[in-house]
Amino acid sequence: MLLQVKDLHTYYGNIKALRGVSFYVDEGEILSFIGANGAGKSTLMNTLAGTLKPKQGEIIFQGEDITKMSPRDRVQKGFILCPEGRQIFPKFTVEENLLMGAYTVKDKNLIKQNYNKVFELFPQIKDRQKQLAGTLSGGEQQMLAISRALMSNPHILMLDEPSLGLSPILVEQIFSLIEEINKQGTTILLVEQNAMAALEISNRAYVLETGEISMTGTGKELLENEMVIKSYLGG
């Protein structure tokens, strides 16, 4: 077990956004959380990343309790979040954005290596290295956001709504790239409103409803589950 989360409770302002969430992530898998808007998906991601503090519960990464660790320490341990809405640095070039992703990496050779690696994955943004990130298209910005996260050399890559605002073709492209990243050895923890796209590439998935896990299974099982089809797949 790579990551274990036990009974997580987090408040978002005065709202109790997570009400005792427990799950685990195995090495090498793609795990996803699906759920409606407001189910607590982003709160969960931000609690895992360390920008929100849980009221209760434990986060154990590789046998170590990281519940109280700063976001920076978590990134250094190989635990990074590519946030909802991309949050790239608009006034920085593509290159500068990637360098910010590598802020915790000391080894210059490793930075260079990762730099080339992300361009292999995302050749579209390679041609735009010197372009300001704010001028990229939505799809390119999402690619940049994922690339920036990969620059930290993560063990687990957490992705919050990578399909947000993208056309169906781009969604397909991004999700096949997520599979590719996973094949290269990065464990993926994905949160999505686009349940279909997420479940298709996931080994396992959880359904999050008003801050609680209501269902779990393999990606395939959930794709065939009547409740899931009715509530999340537009069936």
């Binding site: 990343a49 360390g50 920008t51 976001p71 920076r72 978590r74 990134v75 250094q76 990074i80 979040l81 946030p83 949050q87 790239i88 640095f89 608009p90 006034k91 920085f92 500068e96 360098l99 910010m100 992703g101 802020y103 915790t104 920036r148 930290s152």
Partner: peptide
Amino acid sequence: NRVGRGLRALSQNLNACHLMGMPV
């Protein structure tokens, strides 16, 4: 410079700086 660039990054998106593991 890395630190200088870091200061410019802070002014663009503080939350993203936290998430990138920068010593905010």
